[in-house]
């Protein structure tokens, strides 16, 4: 009697362990694109959704976020040339709490500066994933919307929102700095309203985004999520 009881307990224990292991496995990413010997270099934890705070706390946080927009200084396309004037005394983006940061780790706004080739997209995905949430994406120029004048190129992607979530598009080829500022103000407004949950969207639809990315990035030599 006693023994069987013990056995039962043990079975339960192993089963639980098994389950836990399975769960842990689900939380891991396959990282199939990496060479076997390279897998150890990268973190393979699956990103998970982070819920916003509740109520006024989140509003306050969102206000702070909207007042302190740090741009990732990565000129992904020719539109990046229109970012420079923002720093000048004529446009003075600092007034709005906007600053450029040289590293994705510290930035919260990623500006896709125009057309993105496949090669660039790989870097865009990598940098986007390296940013810490909440993070926002500004699509700058027509190319990010529908490919713009390069829409039929063998190498230019047409819709950036198929690969990473975009919060605000600024149309034009090229949009002027004023339009960019307009986009920023729109973004701020949206952040304050709590509408910019792009990061959680990316995680919710993670597999879809990944499938899209992998469809065109053939030599996927990075982990599935670049922590």
């Amino acid at each position: 009697m006693k023994e069987s009881n013990m056995d039962g307990l043990q079975t339960t224990a192993t089963e639980t362990e098994q389950q836990l292991e399975d769960m842990a496995k689900e939380m891991r990413l396959a990282n199939d694109g990496l060479l076997e010997q390279d897998k150890g270099y990268f973190c393979d934890v699956r990103p998970h959704r982070v819920e916003p705070y509740k109520g006024i706390m989140e509003s306050f946080a969102n206000w702070a976020r909207s007042q302190s927009l740090w741009i990732l200084g990565f000129g992904t396309g020719c539109g990046a040339i229109e970012l420079r004037p923002l720093m000048t005394s004529r446009f003075d983006m600092y007034r709005y709490g906007i600053q450029a940061r040289p590293t994705p780790r510290q930035s919260c706004v990623f500006i896709i500066g125009g057309y993105a080739s496949v090669k660039t997209l790989k870097r865009i995905v990598r940098s986007y994933e390296q940013m810490q949430g909440p993070k926002f994406v500004l699509g700058l120029g027509s190319c990010t919307v529908n490919g713009g004048m390069y829409w039929d190129s063998y190498n230019t992607i047409n819709r950036i929102d198929q690969y990473i979530p975009v919060d605000v598009y600024i149309a034009g080829c090229m949009p002027r700095p004023e339009a960019l500022l307009g986009g920023f103000i729109k973004l701020k407004q949206m952040i304050r309203e709590g509408k910019c949950e792009g990061m959680n969207k990316y995680i919710d639809d993670f597999d879809w985004y990944k499938a899209n990315q992998k469809q065109i990035i053939h030599d996927w030599n990075m982990p599935d999520y670049n922590w």
Partner: peptide, 18 residues
């Protein structure tokens, strides 16, 4: 930038979710 911008930056960084 506003004079209080450093406060907001610090707040924002501490409000980062990840």
């Amino acid at each position: 930038q506003p004079v209080w911008q450093p406060y907001i930056d610090i707040l924002k960084n501490n409000f980062k979710r990840t």
